[in-house]
């Protein structure tokens, strides 16, 4: 199988200047790879640094060491040292991300929130919306909500908008931060199905799932983040 991402010796430490410069080591020596057609799961207790790892892979957090090589436009680039402009290009075309919470933009309809990643790629608006409608239908999002801005939606409704937004493109790498946390059983099944089709299309997925049923249904292997706990590496 195709290796699409290799993280090696990635390190993250927060320095809290508001608290007298105290250093908060999060993870160190994070090393793993992601292959196309498989879903890996970050495991370990809360607070161990799972979300921080996802955020570093997406370029949202900076890395204090190490490399994150991804195959982007047929060559290898390092997310950890990429310029802002390259990170944006990687996000547009190579790495997708479904965050836990939707950051709602005022006045933009749920449909356009979900369609946006396609619009950024230059897909025509109506075609992009049509794909968003398809995903909303699949995710059982009531049609009366589609034209409304998601700010006032329930947690589960917002999460489904977020999932549609994340799954609408064909990014070869997809990061999932607890995409099913606020969903009911029926919609969890839908997401499990969406993940399975991404795998079938050859995408590499990496997720955090606290729900054991979902994790068991999608995981091909588990990456134990406690092994990267920064305290451990220092000892």
């Amino acid at each position: 199988m195709n290796t699409l991402l290799v993280a090696s010796e990635v390190k993250k430490t927060f320095v809290m200047h508001m608290r007298g410069g105290v250093e908060l080591p999060v993870v160190a020596n994070v090393s793993f790879s992601l292959k196309g057609g498989a879903c890996a799961v970050l495991g370990g207790p809360s607070g161990v640094g799972k979300s921080s790892i996802l955020k570093m892979l997406y370029g949202n957090y900076g890395c204090d060491g190490g490399q994150i090589l991804v195959r982007h436009h047929g060559r290898h680039v390092d997310v950890a040292s990429a310029s802002p402009r390259l990170v944006l290009e990687i996000r547009r075309d190579t790495i997708g991300y479904v965050s836990q919470f939707l950051r709602a933009v005022p006045r933009v309809s749920a449909l356009d929130v979900a369609a946006e990643p396609l619009l950024i790629r230059g897909v025509e608006r109506e075609a992009a919306r049509e794909q968003a409608r398809g995903l909303f239908t699949e995710l059982n999002l009531p049609e009366k909500l589609w034209s409304l801005p998601p700010a006032t939606f329930s947690g589960g409704e917002q999460q489904r908008v977020n999932i549609a937004r994340g799954f609408i493109t064909d990014h070869p790498i997809l990061l999932l931060d607890e995409p099913t946390a606020s969903l009911d059983a029926a919609n969890r099944e839908v997401v499990i199905g969406l993940i399975a089709s991404k795998k079938a299309e050859g995408a590499a997925l990496l997720g955090i799932f606290h729900d054991t049923d979902v994790r068991n249904a999608v995981a091909d292997h588990v990456i134990d983040v406690s092994a990267f706990a920064a305290g451990k590496a220092a000892a």
């Binding site: 200047h17 508001m18 955020k55 370029g59 949202n60 957090y61 900076g62 802002p84 990170v87």
Partner: peptide, 21 residues
């Protein structure tokens, strides 16, 4: 200086941390 979401979510400089907080 940097990517907007990174500066806001992972601010480095003491002053940026103060602004964000």
């Amino acid at each position: 200086a940097g990517l907007t979401d990174r500066v806001l979510d992972d601010p480095r400089a003491p002053y940026t941390q103060l602004l964000v907080s």
